[in-house]
């Protein structure tokens, strides 16, 4: 079967600085891939490239059976969002913006989809609540619902557990696993935490200046990269 996303020898240059070089990986439908690596190894840059926000300086990124706009994306939260006046519903509905035509008004179908996404994230009761009053975990669930509005096949997450306490983090990972196994949603996730990456994902892409690793998690666990990066428990 053809991979839905393939990236071959991609290189990204940012302000004349090479942020990531020679990255090769594939993602098939329904797979769960975690991207690991130290700060500054180019994880976020790679994700922006895959989303079509940055053009690779060389190499190739290609899709099969899916368009970049049909990826559900959970970016890192910005300062602006912390005190932004918007309800959960307004934010969730904005996940359907990739389906807007002209004039850009949301259809009944879009509203149903947004409501389904909220229900799936068990956040329906938050619908009319102000986003800025929610806890960190609730906010991530709402942003995940927004991402689900945009996507049927592929979700991309940039450190979704950042700023969450351990209980919330576990709950978020459980939700992602459920999406992956029950809905067959492919997941591409940047993570800071190699242990949970190994626990939940099927494949690992580890970016490092001394050569990248791409393979199954079992292969990854036997590499020196994991032993060094994974810390004491490895």
């Amino acid at each position: 079967m053809k991979p839905i996303l393939s990236c071959s020898a991609a290189k990204f240059v940012y302000n004349s600085f090479t942020a990531a070089d020679d990255i090769t990986f594939e993602l098939h439908g329904g797979e769960y891939l975690a991207i690991l690596g130290e700060n500054g190894s180019g994880k976020s840059t790679l994700m922006k490239g895959v989303l079509g926000l940055l053009k690779p300086a060389s190499g190739k990124i290609s899709y099969s059976g899916i368009k970049p706009q049909e990826i559900g994306y959970l970016p890192q939260q910005t300062v602006v969002q912390k005190d932004f006046p918007a309800t959960v519903w307004e934010i969730t509905l904005s996940g359907c913006q990739n389906r807007l035509g002209f004039p850009p008004f949301y259809s009944g179908a879009a509203k149903n989809r947004a409501l389904d996404s909220l229900k799936y994230m068990q956040a329906e009761d938050l619908k009319s609540k102000p986003f800025r009053n929610l806890s960190g975990g609730q906010q991530q669930r709402v942003l995940l619902a927004r991402a689900l509005c945009a996507a049927d096949k592929l979700l991309m997450l940039d450190e979704p557990a950042a700023g969450l306490d351990p209980v919330m983090t576990e709950r978020l990972y459980a939700l992602l696993s459920e999406l992956n196994s029950q809905r067959g949603m492919a997941i591409l996730m940047i993570s800071h935490d190699p242990e949970s990456a190994v626990r939940y994902s099927g494949k690992i892409l580890h970016l490092s200046r001394n050569g990248h690793f791409f393979g199954t998690k079992d292969e990854y666990c036997s590499t020196p990269l994991y032993k060094r990066f994974g810390g004491s428990n490895a």
């Binding site: 990826i71 994306y73 910005t78 934010i91």
Partner: peptide
């Protein structure tokens, strides 16, 4: 206004 990165990724 709410999320420029997400908007761009969604093709806006």
């Amino acid at each position: 206004t709410f999320d420029e990165t997400f908007a761009k990724a969604a093709g806006s």
